[in-house]
């Protein structure tokens, strides 16, 4: 490549960001780092299944006002929604070849998970701190 001979940019700099995700291995590792905590959290929720499936709102609220359940639910929401947004991003990148639609889908996806995630955390905090 003749272009390269006259360039001051390093090879790494030229290669960065031209993959379909415009991002390197970061996406891959973030997806996994967000996935791992969900394994113990799922096991914890299995031990709490009676509280999670109760018909009695007062009992559910009381459970969610305890620190451990509240923190566990918030952690789960953070992990699931962050992991989910990265995962759906991967699917969009694979199936939406048109650049314009791809970018729009990626933005909609981010907003979807950010919105749902923050709303869910708000609901948990409001319940925990007794705003009911």
């Amino acid at each position: 490549m003749t272009e390269k001979t006259h360039s001051f940019r390093t090879d790494l700099n030229r290669a960065r960001g031209i993959g379909s995700a415009k991002d390197g291995v970061g996406h891959w590792s973030k997806l996994r780092i967000a996935a791992i905590p969900m394994v113990p959290l799922f096991i914890y929720f299995l031990t709490q299944i009676d509280h999670l499936t109760t018909r009695n709102r007062a009992a559910f609220v009381e459970w969610l006002q305890e620190p451990v359940p509240a923190i566990a639910v918030i952690l789960f929401i953070v992990c699931a929604f962050f992991h989910g947004s990265l995962g759906v991003e991967e699917i969009i990148i694979d199936y939406v070849p048109n650049e314009k639609y791809k970018i729009i889908s990626l933005i909609v996806n981010k907003m979807f998970f950010l919105g749902l995630g923050f709303a869910s955390i708000y609901a948990v905090l409001a319940i925990s701190f007794g705003k009911i």
Partner: peptide, 17 residues
């Protein structure tokens, strides 16, 4: 599918609220 189901988690928490 799980990502879509996440909507219901939010709905459920808001119902409790």
């Amino acid at each position: 599918g799980l990502a879509l189901g996440a909507i219901l988690v939010t709905v459920w928490l808001f119902a409790a609220l």
